[in-house]
Nucleic acid binder design. Sequence first.
DNA 1: TTGATTGCAAACAATTTGCAATACT
DNA 2: AGTATTGCAAATTGTTTGCAATCAA
Lengths: 142, 142
Amino acid sequence: MAEKTTYRTRQRDEILRFFDEHRDRCFSARDLVGQVDAGEATIFRALSTLTNEGKLKKFTGGSGESAHYQFNASECALHIHLKCRGCGQLIHMDCAFMKEILAHFKNEHAFTVDCGQTVIYGLCGECTGENIHSSEEEHYHD
Amino acid sequence: MAEKTTYRTRQRDEILRFFDEHRDRCFSARDLVGQVDAGEATIFRALSTLTNEGKLKKFTGGSGESAHYQFNASECALHIHLKCRGCGQLIHMDCAFMKEILAHFKNEHAFTVDCGQTVIYGLCGECTGENIHSSEEEHYHD
DNA sequence: TTGATTGCAAACAATTTGCAATACT
DNA sequence: AGTATTGCAAATTGTTTGCAATCAA
């Protein structure tokens, strides 16, 4: 789990550059295939080492769902994510109240939330209201 | 993802009874093999439907790690759960502020939280404080 | 040169699915 | 009887690993 990087390689550079150029989005290993010139195994290894080095932030998907990664300078590690069960969209909850919530967990429940592992499930506004009559084939996967 | 149960079967009953008799612990599908008289595929299917019905609560493991399930008391649908990644304890967060949080999600983000499916991961007070000098083999799995 | 890293293919583990046999109601 | 559910085995998916070839220092 804690590999050390000794050499600097083209593929790792390329992968990190890709994340840097898309700071606002997160990608799975599979997403990178085709986007960067590196074998799939290498991509997995790079994602792992880059995460260990703190350059990327890892979001664990539910069972079966693939893990997603994002450039770590982004604020994603600091806010909670809301995932809509209807349309699958991922909402980055980055408002002031968010900090209050995290503070509450910390102060009143002595609980330190790991935003990277936490996803709050529910239904977004569109799905609570309009989705009633939408097509039942509501496949998600952002 | 949202299967409906029409018939009542021995294996589903048995699985739910097993969880009922071990309300304080959580188990993976694999854990149930041998404990209940049902094929593995059936166990997976039952865990899925029972979770959909709100009878069980599902905990997502990291990628690769198996999902775990635990008996879900009916009151649990109303509050959020905090799961400590250190010691594995499940905290039922049932305070007044909880309602404020849910209201905020609803009003400011138009997001309806599904408490039955949401688990907030992090570290409890004991694990943030005292765990520094504990044995490194900090395997959880309650 | 020498050890680190890549890439392919095979190995894996968790979970899902096709389908005939079987159990509910 | 008629449909839902089971169970087995085969199929999928996400990820890891062995190992020879290749690259970085």
